[in-house]
Amino acid sequence: MLDGLQLLGQNAIGFFQRLGRGHILFIAILAGIPELLARFRLVIQQVYSVGVLSLVIILVSGLFVGMVLGLQGYNTLVDFGAEESLGIMVALSLVRELGPVVTALLFAGRAGSALTAEIGLMKATDQLSAMEMMAVDPIRRVLTPRFLAGFISMPLLAAIFSAVGVLGGALVGVGLLGVDEGAFWSQMQDRVDLHEDIYNGVIKSLVFGVVVTWIAVFEGYDCVPTSEGVSRATTRTVVHSALAVLGLDFILTALMFGED
């Protein structure tokens, strides 16, 4: 019994320790941003590996999610005689929720885990230590560019996801199921608000970008420098990112779209 409590206590202290280390690292990463603006090539390199290489999965997923929304939405709305509102349904679902959230989850799985593995491996093979000994701060040289790249890429990816999704929904709704094209688009344009829906969606994806990239980079930097340690850190990145994104999504949604 006492052992159990002790274990719980140790885990709790360990949890807070990690939380603390994570935040200290976050500040160190941010501190490296100013000098990075002069060496932007490092960031561009990372935007490529983190953003461009995620394009394929985002495009495909966005298209399919949009098409499913079109299909399912039609099936539900047709019972109320409201199938002309399909455009609104697809657009709002994507722009407000699915775009930012699903993109963040896919990003965490593809780019986040890759970042963790890369940094963890650099730690395990003493590359980070070697940089330190060469008087180069590994946080500013390795972590900050990747962090900025994630921050820049996420909203772009989410926008692409939503845009392709709407097109996919139109493809299914108008093309396949016969919803009136004019009604589809005009009802959507009438109801989707630039400020309320699109800006808020972008803000969500920016927040997710910060959180997911931060977790990915931290887990890599903080991992146990063995192959087992790196593999566990990669798993943690995906799991913690997913939980954080979903939890934050609820909070953000309540703040943004709650009743005033």
């Binding site: 003493d126 230590s129 060469m134 180069v136």
Partner: peptide, 26 residues
């Protein structure tokens, strides 16, 4: 540290850049 050089046990070269760039790095 700029006045010290260290040779790690496994070399600890930066694996994503070439030999030339590794030496040019510092």
């Amino acid at each position: 540290r700029k006045r010290m050089g260290m040779l790690f046990q496994n070399g600890a070269l930066l694996t994503d850049i070439s030999v030339f760039d590794n030496i040019a790095f510092p």
